[in-house]
């Protein structure tokens, strides 16, 4: 076997095209050729080793942390204005139009993506969405959706964005991003992480909290055994007045537990809509915008 391999190698080494390649290379400016090849490889993702590969550029990594840093540098006034959108999935043309529309709105503090960034959990899909969303004039934050958790999605999301559960305090309001995609974990009791949520809600460095989660607690993709515990935590904290979601691909606003907490669901990008949410002390306004 080894000798056969060697035979084959020798055959290759003695090929006449070795000279041809040498001539070809010396004829061109090899450096220019190499730079060109490098640009092709890096610039256009020219080589794909697997549809499920996770090959990211530096500006495609750790985006949650980077965008949080940008948001912390902003100085909030007494009114916080945010855009809630979600379910970008496979609708890049619509997302592109969303960004154009969002950039015409003034005094936006940041954009919230309610999850299902990708459709099949592919790094390529996450990258395309990010390449569009980075054209926003304000930073954007995401929460993980069920479509982002299939195939290699969990790994891609962690590397590109970061933790599935995280929070931020901005203008006295704590925004709590929590993974509620229980079905992806076969309802094993780990998702949503209620211990984590309880700890997040119990701090005293904020007076108001807003929840951002892909699947609303009353949907059957949310662990039904945790639904009442989840909504109970929100109510008992005395700080939450708004819970923001996606997943259902149409707008809806309700108070399903009659406890003064509004559950708002934004529509999918395919349906070309998003919500403009204005928060001020003691009040809020939610406008549905179509583009």
């Amino acid at each position: 076997m080894a000798s056969k391999l060697k035979e084959l190698c020798d055959l290759f080494m003695n090929m006449p095209y070795k000279n041809a390649i040498y001539k070809f290379c010396s004829g061109f400016n090899v450096k220019i050729l190499l730079v060109f090849a490098f640009l092709l490889v890096v610039g256009c993702d020219l080589f794909e080793y697997s549809p499920y590969q996770i090959v990211l550029a530096d500006d495609e990594k750790n985006l949650t942390e980077k965008n949080l840093q940008k948001i912390y540098l902003q100085t909030p006034d007494d009114t916080v204005r945010i855009i809630l959108m979600g379910d970008t999935q496979r609708f890049y043309d619509d997302v592109d139009d969303f960004v154009k529309k969002a950039n015409t709105l003034e005094n936006i503090d940041f954009v919230l993506h309610a999850g299902d960034i990708s459709d099949f959990g592919l790094a390529q899909e996450f990258k395309w969405v990010h390449h569009i969303m980075r054209k926003l004039e304000v930073p954007y934050l995401t929460v993980v959706g069920n479509h982002d958790l299939i195939t290699n999605g969990p790994k891609v999301y962690r590397e590109m964005f970061g933790d599935f559960n995280y929070s931020m305090i901005y203008g006295g309001i704590k925004f709590i991003f929590v993974n509620t995609n229980s079905r992806e974990y076969d309802f094993d009791g780990t998702v949503p992480d209620l211990n984590w949520l309880e700890a997040q809600l119990s701090g005293d460095d904020f007076d108001r909290a807003v929840i951002v989660a892909h699947i609303p607690p009353f949907d059957n993709d949310f662990d039904t055994e945790k639904e009442l515990a989840f909504s109970g935590l929100l109510r008992n904290s005395g700080k939450v007045d708004l819970s923001l979601h996606g997943h259902l691909h149409s707008f809806s606003e309700s108070e399903p537990y009659n406890d003064g907490i509004t559950y708002f669901i934004t529509t999918a990008q395919k349906k070309r809509g998003f919500a403009l949410i204005t928060l001020w002390e003691g009040g809020k306004r939610i406008e549905r915008i179509e583009f």
């Binding site: 590969q53 996770i54 790994k155």
Partner: peptide, 11 residues
């Protein structure tokens, strides 16, 4: 075969 170092995941 995709090595993890090249493809981000061993595939």
């Amino acid at each position: 075969y995709v090595p993890e170092k090249i493809g981000g995941d061993e595939i």
